[in-house]
Every structure is written in C-alpha cells, then in structure tokens.
Write a protein that binds this DNA or RNA. Structure first.
Length: 260
DNA sequence: ATGGCTTCATAGTGAAGA
C-alpha cells in the first residue's frame, strides 16, 4: 500500500500537477492540504476521471483537506470530535482496514502571535484525540502538513531558525507527544539524502539554493511502521512551473491495506 | 532589509502562508 501527502497550496491552481502526479505514482491514497476552495468547487469530475475516489472538507480561501483513493473510503469524518474549530484542517477515513488521518496543522505565524497559541492548543487537542484513535484503530497513519520541523537536521539553517515558529521547542515537544502515543516518523526509519526537505519559501530562490524545512510528515502506528518499506520526499513537482511550495511525501507499507 | 513570492478576494491593496 502506497500512501502520500501533499500540501498543494490551492487545488484549483495545482490540479494539473496533482493529476500528473497521480498518473505517475499511482498511490493507493493521497492526502491533500490547503485546497483553498469550497466543497461545491472541488474538482471531483477530474479526480474521478483519473481513477480516484475523493472525500473532502473545504472552505473559501483558506485551509481545506482531502483524501483521494483508488478504492472507496469508509467511515469518513471531518474535524477533531469535541474540538470546536471553523477551520477545515482534519479529515479521516478508513481504507482497507487502515485509518488515514489527513491534517493541516496551523502555521502559527510567529511565536508571539495569537495564532501560535491556537496552534499549540490545536496540537494538544489532536494528541488527546489521537491517543484514543490509535487504540481504536491499531493501523493508523497520520499524514499531512504539520508545520513543525521536528529536529535541527530537518532545517537547512538551524541557527537562523532557532526558536522561530515551525522550530520552537513547544512545537517540537508537541511533535514528540505524537511519537509517544505510538506514532513513528517513518521518514527516519530509512537513510535519507542531505537536503530532503518538504517546503521551500517561494522567495529568494529558496528551492534552488536548497533552503528548505521538513515540515510535512507521515507518522505510522507501530502495526504499520513495522511493515513500512520506504518513505521518500518527491522533490520533482517543486521544480515545475508554478509549483506548490511543498513537495509530496510517500510511504510504502507492505501487506497493509491489500484486498484479498 | 519585518523585505523577498504566491494565492485569494477584490478591483487598491491586504491577509496569510511558513
């Protein structure tokens, strides 16, 4: 089973890239973030024409998440139960016995911002909820844009980013809390190339200069992590004309989610 | 250099992203 995540920064603008990418990589599931469109404008016909089902939770201008899948999704659910939030940032669904949770974790803007406080509260609510979800679904994958670079090696210039939003200690601690409830960062289960980041600023030629951060992740419960055979960042779409500022992350899990 | 670039909503510029 091949599962992936990609912050597309406007599904309307990036639809051609997404369709090309699906055709090339044929993932069993692709989680998308920052759709930036209302559900009534979701390009369902184009996605279905590409051979994929879709569940989505969108809103005007900001946020918005979707899960695309080759096989139909079951038990689709939006948001974190019991956590009031107008921002569409979470979508869950089951695919052949694997619980997929697609997240667009708040950016936080800066550590002295009210949005940063919202981010930390949001992460706490996510961890509380996921603890029970992992118990309920032993095979659970948490995929998305976390807006957290977990360690210094996930940052091109750790000194410059020290204490800044995306890299601050409270955010990194929140990431470790997710790991403590049994979710493993499968990217780190394998040797990785230098400069394998997932986001590069649009400005200052950041991509060409390799000035990136790894903030998009796939975390797997123990039952999935033990069967994970690869996890890579695909930087190719970042080289295209009018790219998303994020690159997709792909994990492959042997045996999981196969129909028999 | 609180800039740089891209998107959306809007019809000038401003908010937000990370």
């Amino acid at each position: 089973m091949k599962i992936a995540t990609w912050n597309v920064n406007s599904l309307k603008v990036r639809l051609p890239h997404v369709l090309d990418w699906l055709s090339l990589h044929q993932p069993d599931a692709l989680c998308l973030q920052e759709l930036k469109l209302e559900d009534k404008n979701f390009p369902l016909a184009e996605i279905e024409a590409a051979g994929y089902h879709a569940a989505f939770s969108g809103q005007k201008t900001y946020n918005g998440v979707a899960i695309l899948s080759k096989q139909p999704l079951q038990d689709v659910s939006a948001g974190i139960p019991g956590y009031e939030d107008d921002q569409k940032r979470v979508l869950s669904a089951t695919l052949n016995g694997v619980r997929l949770v697609c997240v667009y974790i708040p950016n936080g803007q800066s550590v002295d911002s009210g949005k940063y406080q919202y981010k930390l509260g949001w992460l706490e609510a996510l961890a509380v909820w996921l603890k029970s979800e992992v118990a309920r679904y032993p095979k659970l994958a948490l995929l998305g844009d976390y807006n957290v670079a977990p360690e210094d090696r996930d940052v091109h210039d750790p000194k410059a980013w020290e204490g800044q939003v995306l890299c601050s200690e409270p955010e990194r601690e929140a990431f470790r809390v997710l790991q403590k409830i049994g979710l493993q960062d499968c990217f780190r289960l394998f040797p990785q190339a230098e400069g394998a980041f997932t986001w590069w600023d649009y400005r200052m030629n950041a991509f060409r200069r390799k000035l990136g951060l790894r903030i998009d992740h796939i975390l797997l419960s123990d039952a999935l992590a033990s069967d994970c055979v690869s996890c890579v960042v695909d930087m190719e779409p970042r080289k295209l004309e009018r790219p998303s500022d994020h690159a997709p992350v792909i994990a492959e899990i042997s045996h999981a989610g196969e129909t028999h």
